[in-house]
């Protein structure tokens, strides 16, 4: 599903350099990425998503070689094939929970918002336990409910890959497990691979595999 080969990346003018000789994630796998802050975990997610382009090497997701795509193609690939779950939820404050779930369909021509999509959004919300909260704005939701909305948004486009960046970082201990279970359950239902950055070692046993990122990071000379 995901294949990185001889990937090298450095931020312009920065002292940070990321090198990944090889990294593979199989389809449907649930992989956790761990490592100290600043080790390049989020950079890895951004490289896989095509938000960042490596200086050298290749990043392949499914059939697409993301690192070789142009800017417009990478955006189209991202919105169609990848679902994002952020630590800060990334919800739009002026939209209701329902509109937040449907949001990807309103910001691109690559997706069509039709009755079927709306029905799937309602079904996803039902399964996520927030069906009665869809009319509320994010401010009126608890942290856990916000992340459930974000998961519904990430999965509504039927992505083949879900990238979660500290998705449980802002949640209380009781909620963390439930949210991760929901993410795995819904991702499995949509046959999506999950690549999740986390600091929470208690959650690691739930993943199929753990990648320790300290192996990839190199300090610039």
């Amino acid at each position: 599903m995901i294949a990185l080969r001889e990937v090298s990346f450095a931020y312009p003018g920065g002292a940070f350099r990321l090198s990944v000789p090889a990294l593979d994630v199989a389809a449907g796998e649930r992989v956790a990425v761990v490592g100290p802050s600043g080790s390049g975990k989020t950079t890895l997610l951004n490289l896989v998503a095509g938000i960042l382009v490596p200086a050298s090497g290749s990043v392949r997701v499914g059939e697409a070689e993301v690192s070789a795509l142009g800017d417009a193609a990478r955006r189209a690939f991202r919105i169609q094939k990848i679902g994002f779950v952020f630590q800060d939820f990334g919800l739009i404050d002026y939209l209701s929970a329902r509109d937040n779930v449907l949001h990807p369909y309103r910001i691109t021509d690559a997706l069509t918002l039709d009755a079927d999509t709306r029905a799937r959004a309602e079904a996803l919300a039902e399964k996520a336990g927030i069906a009665d909260k869809l009319a509320r704005r994010p401010k009126a939701l608890s942290q856990g409910e916000k992340q459930r909305v974000a998961i519904c948004r990430a999965l509504l486009t039927r992505p083949s890959l879900v990238l979660a960046d500290e998705a449980t970082g802002n949640l209380d201990p009781d909620t963390k497990g439930a949210i991760l279970d929901l993410l795995f359950e819904r991702a499995a239902a949509e046959k999506a691979t999950v690549l999740a950055v986390t600091h929470d070692h208690e959650l690691l046993p739930r993943f199929d595999r753990v990648i320790d990122f300290r192996d990839f990071r190199q300090k610039a000379a």
Partner: peptide
Amino acid sequence: RSEIETIFKLGCRRATIARL
């Protein structure tokens, strides 16, 4: 800014943000 960054990450084109 954070809203724009989010929708940019989701795959929104700059032209769409300008259109918004």
